[in-house]
């Protein structure tokens, strides 16, 4: 439906068009989205736990986690509030390397990412492994600030950015695809920006 009188608009330059998913616009800044106040997690108090159901598999403290092999990922990210930001540079520990350190293969097809503030988000396990996702520790070479999810956040750049859980403190493998905090509140179970899976009513 063409909107009467809407001609202007900020069309992206044609060379970048193909990198912007439908309904998104290009953002130079880095807006913040979260459900509550920003938790300030001290690295002394930080830990990361891998769980299968309720059962812990392995737990790392900040120093142990930072000693795991680190990788860099520079990716475009897409927020459900319709901004896309190109070439965001992250460094951290690939989920593959976390699993290797725990000495396990992914035990189930689904995962819940858990956060210090009690929030969670679900991601199929296959979207976390084979080089697709990491627990990020640095952004632009510096410690991630608390409002962007520091000290550590999940990075699953090929899904809408709420899946990249801020203040992450663990991954829980689940038998079924269990909705997390935002998914229980109307957001999509998978969240593919290229299929515009924003809300639960989207196909």
């Amino acid at each position: 439906m063409v909107t009467r009188g809407f001609f202007s608009g900020r069309r992206p330059p044609s060379d970048t068009d193909a990198r912007i998913p439908p309904g998104q616009y290009l953002e130079q800044g880095f807006p913040v989205l979260s459900a509550g106040p920003t938790p300030r997690v001290r690295t002394e108090d930080w830990s990361f736990t891998l769980k299968q159901g309720p059962k812990p598999i392995k737990k790392w403290n900040w120093a142990e986690f930072n000693a795991l092999p680190q990788s860099k990922m520079t990716r475009d990210i897409h927020c459900v509030t319709a901004w896309t930001k190109f070439n965001t540079p992250w460094q951290g520990v690939m989920i593959d390397d976390i699993l290797a350190d725990a000495g396990i293969e992914p035990p189930t097809a689904y995962t819940l990412a858990l956060s210090f503030d009690g929030y969670s988000t679900n991601v199929p396990t296959k979207d976390l492994v084979t080089g697709k996702a990491m627990v990020a520790l640095l952004y632009e070479g510096k410690a991630i600030t608390p409002d962007h999810g520091g000290p550590a956040r999940l990075l699953v750049p090929h899904l809408y950015f709420w899946k990249s859980a801020k203040w992450v403190n663990g991954l829980q493998f689940t038998e079924r695809d269990e909705p997390g905090f935002w998914e229980l509140r109307g957001y999509h179970m998978y969240g593919d920006p290229w299929r515009e899976q924003r809300y639960s009513s989207d196909p």
Binding site: P31, V32, T38, D117
Partner: peptide, 23 residues
């Protein structure tokens, strides 16, 4: 960000604070 910090500073528990950010 500033107002949520003010609430925390005033002793409002973080668990009862809900935020909506306009970008």
């Amino acid at each position: 960000s500033a107002a949520a910090d003010a609430l925390i500073g005033a002793g409002v528990p973080a668990e009862i604070i809900r935020t909506e950010r306009y970008g």
